[in-house]
């Protein structure tokens, strides 16, 4: 296992979640969110691009960001399950965002001392972005949790549906462990405390309770995805694959 594969996992997380958010563009519940959701998607896709570029360089086989994004199928994608979950409704979307950002914020903060300069560079920018995502998504979780009867019910449903995907965030694959030993990426398990603090704070204001998760779903890092990812990739990759060798 190699460091570049750990970067690929991270890049896939960002691209897949950015893609999911971009599906909202033009269809959000209000105009302000038609601006905010693409904004967050752009942050994520921006980080994904730098991470793919670095992964491709370290791999050393001449694969650029588009080769990595467009010419791997669902069994080769290495994103965690959380980010591929479908948008469902706005409650699911903002909770998925909060979970991801609450993990990534402390992650990027620690990655500021990475032994790799490119990772350091991403960390500086992405850490600030994640702080905004926590604030924006967190405010929505609070509004919806403590809003109307319907919004509280939908928010509770989202917690029920998504909390089983949280534990996987803290797992380090073999590749990630190698990257951690090399000091390139932070140790994922170390984010737990910071993550729990953010979620506890938001949930208490949102009047939400954290469910006991009997079994955390895992598998993304070994290419064991849900059924939704294949459809996402089929759509995302269709045009690129229809014109092999073309530049855009």
């Amino acid at each position: 296992m190699a460091v570049w594969e750990a970067l690929l996992e991270l890049a896939d997380d960002h691209l897949v979640l950015g893609h999911r958010l971009s599906e909202w563009c033009g269809h959000a519940p209000m105009l302000e969110e038609d601006l905010a959701l693409p904004n967050m998607a752009l942050d994520l896709i921006g980080s994904a691009r730098t991470l793919y570029d670095l992964a491709g360089t370290l791999e050393g086989k001449g694969r650029d960001e588009d080769a990595l994004a467009y010419f791997r199928g669902e069994r080769d994608y290495r994103n965690c399950l959380l980010v591929e979950r479908p948008n469902e409704d706005f409650a699911h979307t903002v909770l998925r965002q909060l979970y991801f950002a609450a993990f990534m914020k402390p992650y990027w903060d620690r990655a500021m001392t990475s032994t790799n300069a490119v990772v350091q560079g991403v960390a500086g920018k992405a850490g600030k972005e994640m702080a905004y995502h926590i604030r924006h998504a967190g405010e929505w979780v609070i509004r919806l949790g403590d809003g109307t009867e319907e919004s509280a019910r939908r928010m509770a449903d989202a917690v029920e549906a998504l909390s089983i995907y949280v534990d996987e965030l803290f797992d380090s694959s073999d590749a990630a462990q190698d990257a951690e030993k090399a000091g390139v990426l932070p140790v994922r398990a170390e984010m737990r405390e910071a993550f729990d603090a953010v979620i506890a704070d938001v949930f208490s204001q949102a009047l939400l309770t954290q469910p006991d998760v009997a079994y955390g779903q895992r598998g993304g890092r070994t290419g064991q995805h849900g059924e939704g990812l294949g459809h996402l990739l089929a759509e995302m990759q269709s045009l690129h694959r229809a014109h092999p060798g073309a530049t855009w």
Binding site: H19, S22, R49
Partner: peptide, 22 residues
Amino acid sequence: ITRAPSLRRKAALLAKVQDEGG
């Protein structure tokens, strides 16, 4: 947006559509 043929184009198109909303 979801079918843009490169990541660079995907980001540019998202930003453009977002501008129109603005």
